[in-house]
Design a binder for these strands. Structure first.
Lengths: 107, 107
DNA sequence: ACAAACCATAGCCAAATGGTTATTGATCGT
DNA sequence: ACGATCAATAACCATTTGGCTATGGTTTGT
């Protein structure tokens, strides 16, 4: 219970990397090529980021011929959600909006 | 709505810094000295981290004589919670465990 | 008055980070 | 068969980061 969120936080803290995760979350499975296209950075940079995300389980890669399709793995956010959940106890009494925000997450 | 979570994520991604925020969340207002004590790093390092946390609004400092009391400001987590909340829409239909986790956050 | 305590700042340094170009390996289309 | 495409890796580079020591500025206690 409530595992180390450091690795997940590090991954999401970089805007380029978070954009990859967001795009895969929104649009589903995509190739490296499609992800590189509008990213503003080179294909090797994207591959490296995807490798890092994969390493902490935030994405999964499926090789198909010469292409690799990546998909988001939101399960890997569990440590982060656990962390927020755990500390929400301490925040609750002085963060009025928290309750509303948490409700919004589970409508 | 759903502001940039990058700054907040960067702050929490460092273990030393997150430990400060956690400690202030658990134990309430504390001096720099008290925070430095069991941290394993020097007082200037702690002060620098507190300055960074303060800069993004995650803590607030109150000077009292020669001591400075810091407190956590969980309100500043709003961008992060908004981000998770926003993407939960996309995850919800393919992340079964999320629902359970979110329920655990708001029992 | 003055030494000690508390905190912030300055200056420095090693390591980590995020990017690049070049290259390689594999697969596809013609 | 072979040139083109896709992705990963290698090698390199600049910047950022997180730590340190040294110092300075206040405030406190004696």
């Amino acid at each position: 219970m409530h595992a180390e969120p450091t690795a997940v936080l590090k991954m999401l803290a970089d805007p380029t990397r978070r954009a990859l995760f967001e795009r895969l979350s929104r649009e589903g499975e995509m190739t490296v090529h499609a992800l590189t296209d509008p990213s503003g950075v080179s294909q090797p940079a994207i591959s490296k980021h995807l490798g890092a995300l994969k390493h902490v389980g935030l994405v999964r890669g499926r090789r198909d011929g010469r292409e690799t399709y990546y998909r988001a793995e939101p399960k890997a956010l569990a440590p982060l959600i656990d962390w927020i959940s755990f500390y929400s106890t301490f925040w609750h009494h002085r963060f009025d909006r928290l309750e509303a925000l948490l409700k919004r997450m589970d409508p």
